[in-house]
Design a protein around this nucleic acid. Structure first.
Lengths: 222, 222
DNA sequence: AATATCCTTTGACATAAATCAAAAAAACTG
DNA sequence: CAGTTTTTTTGATTTATGTCAAAGGATATT
């Protein structure tokens, strides 16, 4: 169970037992807040089952999703190492089972086992890479490019031209840094151009070359 | 020397010697590339003296600065832990002295000393926090808000209403995710409204309340 | 100091994307 | 399955910011 979580991969048996003894097993319904920006952090979380979105909110209520957390992934680690408070919000978007790992126990463990430290360094590095990509897209690319990149990413994940969004289009808009209306118009244009076909939450890639060009920063010619 | 670098703080004497023996001391003129996005990483860097900008480039050549590196700070660590290549570019904006730390030697050290691992975790967490803030600003705030937040940040750094940009306005624009023309117009408006005064690279805060309101997401009323 | 280079500002204009409003479609729920 | 809620689409309009072009300033270099 715990040994399947990438963060705990390679840990010695005693350390794994330590982990099991430290965690609190929690269940959340869909749409519940797991942690809020600005809250003092008493520990961090590992998602066992379900799905969680990590996001920021503007004062006017607009949401920017930073990333989604899937089973086996952790979140809320930042304040463990740099102190202070959670930098963003986490909310379940499906019924979820979550392990909570208290700060002190985790810091003990990480001091005792360099493997755990290395796993965590790998995790934070991966996250940093993702965030760098997000900044790049928000700042240097237009919405059609971001959408194209996301579709290609989904396609690479399941190695198929048929991709299913497992989130609502509204959530996709929030992940891409835009609003549902804009996303809807762009999906409409891409359909009209026969770059993709859209049926509800099922997309099919019709012209990969154009998508790749768009993702690289190319403009969308009507 | 090496002991002054936060990353190496708290290391035992033998480890510090190890560090000193591993690093390569390099000098760069202003405007030189230290590392490029997509390059294979053979190690990471610590800036001893000078200033370095970390940035992404769009296909059309627009630049987004992710952050500046000052003396004592490290950069280029991400591929050490998650493998692969540098996610961004690094270029000196002043004559700089830089230590290069080869990958293998560093990974050895980090396995041997949990202090170093913890220091690095703290560093990556800090970076992640910064990046989260940058995403928030790019996606959820307008340029005047980002500028206001930056001015307030500078003011908090030196605890004064007089702040000096130690970068060009073009670089500031790139850091704020905009272009020099837009920044210039907004600085002009803020001056006209007597929120700040601008003299070259010296700014003075005239109305902190308005800046704080702007930074929080408030709109700029002409 | 003179020249060249770089940085900053200003103006006119274009445009991607947001906003507002409302309808249509889809997904839940009792 | 009827009704309610949520999600998605469409249209008309606004707006923040980008683009292009050119002129002024400032700064560095011989």
């Amino acid at each position: 169970m715990v040994a399947d979580i990438p963060l705990f991969k390679g840990l010695a048996k005693e350390q794994l037992d330590e982990v099991v003894n430290s965690i609190a097993d929690q269940t959340f319904d869909r749409g519940q807040t797991v942690l809020s920006e600005g809250e003092a952090a008493e520990g961090f979380f590992v998602l066992v089952q379900g799905k969680v979105k990590i996001f920021k909110l503007s004062t006017e209520g607009k949401e920017q999703i930073l990333h989604f957390v899937g089973p086996g992934e952790s979140f809320g680690e930042v304040p463990m190492f740099s102190g202070g408070r959670f930098p963003a919000n986490a909310e379940t978007i499906e019924k979820s089972r979550i392990f909570f790992f208290p700060r002190a126990a985790f810091l003990d463990l990480i001091g005792a086992d360099p493997t755990l430290a290395m796993n965590m360094l790998a995790e934070l590095s991966k996250r940093l890479r993702q965030m760098t990509r997000l900044v790049e897209e928000l700042s240097l690319k237009e919405v059609p490019s971001r959408l194209a990149a996301y579709i290609l990413y989904l396609s690479s994940e399941n190695e198929s031209d048929d991709v299913g969004l497992d989130i609502t289009k509204g959530q996709l808009a929030s992940l891409l840094g835009t609003i549902p209306e804009t996303l809807s118009r762009i999906l409409g244009k891409m359909s009209a151009q026969e770059v993709i076909s859209v049926q509800g939450r099922k997309l099919k890639i019709l012209d990969r070359t154009i998508l790749e060009d768009l993702a690289a920063g190319g403009k969308f010619v009507i």
